[in-house]
Design a protein around this nucleic acid. Structure first.
Length: 119
DNA sequence: CAAATGACGGGGT
DNA sequence: AACCCCGCCATTT
């Protein structure tokens, strides 16, 4: 274990910890997740952290999507379908592999709820 | 050790 | 909207 590795591991842990704070039914982008962990320009780092995270960590990895609302995995990738399934289980609307970030992103939609007509 | 690789992001065309 | 291009940064080749 090199000191440099410790630093990386630390950042990974911060990212995973931040991910655990994301409630069901909401999503967050890779970049914003890293930012919440105190890391700027860490989108790709967030990817590495998730990829290296052991399955037994039981993380809500499916709540992480691209900034534009699209699923990170390619459409044909098996994990893509898995992520969509998990999100829908939580009530997140996914259409054509895309999510309306103005409604489901963490921190979005909350302030505008009251001005929505009551259907 | 240099180069390639990604579950990325933002800007420009 | 759909691309392309480039910057980013840990991990893998």
């Amino acid at each position: 274990m090199n000191p440099a590795d410790d630093a990386s591991t630390q950042r990974h842990q911060h990212i995973l910890a931040a991910l655990r704070q994301v409630p069901a039914g909401r999503v967050i982008s890779y970049g914003r997740l890293a930012a919440r962990a105190g890391i700027a320009r860490g989108a790709r780092l967030a990817v590495a952290a998730l990829r290296l995270a052991p399955d037994e960590a039981a993380l809500p990895w499916h709540r992480v999507v691209r900034a534009d609302g699209r699923i990170g995995f390619p459409p044909d990738h098996p994990q893509h379908a898995e992520q969509v399934r998990r999100l829908r289980d939580e009530g997140v609307v996914v259409h054509n592999g895309r999510i309306d970030m103005t409604r489901f992103a963490l921190g979005a939609g909350e302030a505008s709820d009251w001005l929505l007509p009551a259907d």
